[in-house]
């Protein structure tokens, strides 16, 4: 009974959230806030991509590098080869995934700190290439004049921030639905197993390398898609969009939101995307405050906002239930 009613509650919350999100452009006017909402969705897609990699226990600091691959690919495919947006968009995801597949076979053997150090270096490497491979990337000046997205059966292009919002929302919802299904499937269980104990997972018939590789490829695919979205949204990309700090940002979205649920990276993107704007009044001190907030988070909310909310909700629920549960046999609920 309780499981069923909470499932209905969850369904209602999800439908309400989707409808609410769909209506945002009708209520939010002014480019400033629409810009932020668009960026939130793009960042959420990217943070979700990192979430699946984290779910197998690999902490990657190269996510912005894979985003860069997608962004430059998408920009050049539309600029130089005049491909339609949708084709370039999908190809950029596939390209990032292909790079992940090639690299992953070797680098996923690295564990813990070594994987972190390597992906840090990898991100710097991609950053250097984006600065130096002028023919491909436009060097330090970057690529300008990237076109707004066009869609089949839709006249014109998604020029305004409100039009773009619906595209970003659709991509975000598709990514979310896909990951939600994946996490509930046996493969989701495999990822949890590999994260918690690779040794035990291997001893019970999981192939840890394969599980990590699939997650890395899917996560990088989403990073490529996010890169493409951001290129066609900002219409301008340059190496500074893909620094190590961007990778840290995606990691932070997961950690601040809580990396053990899909809500985590989304909440993280909602909080962190507008944060620089909130700190804008203290422009001088913005960077310092950002660092300070990060340290305070690690000190007091290391499992993220989602887990803190979850714990307080559970505490309230327990408190409400306590009188009725008195004397009830605890084992009663365990019978299937």
């Amino acid at each position: 009974m309780r499981a069923r009613s909470s499932r209905y509650a969850l369904a209602i919350v999800i439908v309400a959230a989707v409808v609410g999100a769909w209506l945002v452009p009708s209520f939010v006017h002014g480019n400033f806030w629409l810009h932020i909402f668009d960026m939130m969705l793009i960042n959420a897609v990217l943070a979700l991509g990192l979430n699946i990699i984290l779910k197998t226990g690999q902490v990657s600091l190269a996510h912005a590098g894979f985003m860069a691959i997608g962004a430059y690919a998408s920009a050049q495919l539309t600029l130089k080869l005049a491909l339609p947006f949708l084709a370039a968009f999908l190809l950029s995801g596939i390209l990032a995934a292909a790079v992940a597949l090639l690299l992953g076979r070797v680098i996923l053997r690295l564990k813990g700190v070594y994987f972190i150090l390597f992906t840090f270096a990898l991100n710097e490497f991609i950053f250097l290439v984006s600065k130096d491979a002028v023919a491909l990337t436009g060097g330090n000046t970057g690529l300008v004049g990237i076109k707004a997205p066009t869609l089949p059966f839709v006249a014109g292009s998604l020029q305004t921030k409100a039009q773009f919002y619906y595209l970003a929302l659709a991509v975000f919802l598709l990514a979310l639905a896909f990951l939600a299904a994946l996490y509930r499937s046996p493969f989701g269980r495999a990822m949890d197993a590999v994260r918690e104990s690779e040794q035990l997972a291997e001893a019970t018939g999981y192939d840890p390398m394969r599980v990590k590789l699939i997650a890395f490829v899917i996560g990088s695919f989403l990073a490529g898609l996010g890169g493409s979205l951001s290129a066609h949204f900002l219409r301008y990309i340059a190496p500074f969009n893909f620094t190590f700090w961007e990778s840290v940002n995606f990691l932070l979205m997961n950690i601040i939101g809580g990396s053990f649920s899909l809500a985590g990276p989304i909440i993280g993107a909602l909080i962190l995307t507008p944060l620089p704007e909130f700190l804008r009044d203290y422009l001088l001190w913005q960077q310092f405050l950002y660092g300070l907030i990060l340290m305070l988070f690690m000190r007091f909310l290391p499992d993220g906002v989602t887990s803190a909310i979850g714990m307080s909700v559970r505490a309230v629920v327990d408190w409400v239930r306590t009188p009725r549960r008195k004397g009830a046999p605890v084992a009663a609920e365990t019978q299937p």
Binding site: A181, L182, Y183, S185, P186, G188, A190, A193, T204
Partner: peptide
């Protein structure tokens, strides 16, 4: 669950 299971979309 390690040895078998339905496909992803079954989720």
């Amino acid at each position: 669950a390690a040895r078998s299971g339905p496909a992803v979309w079954s989720g």
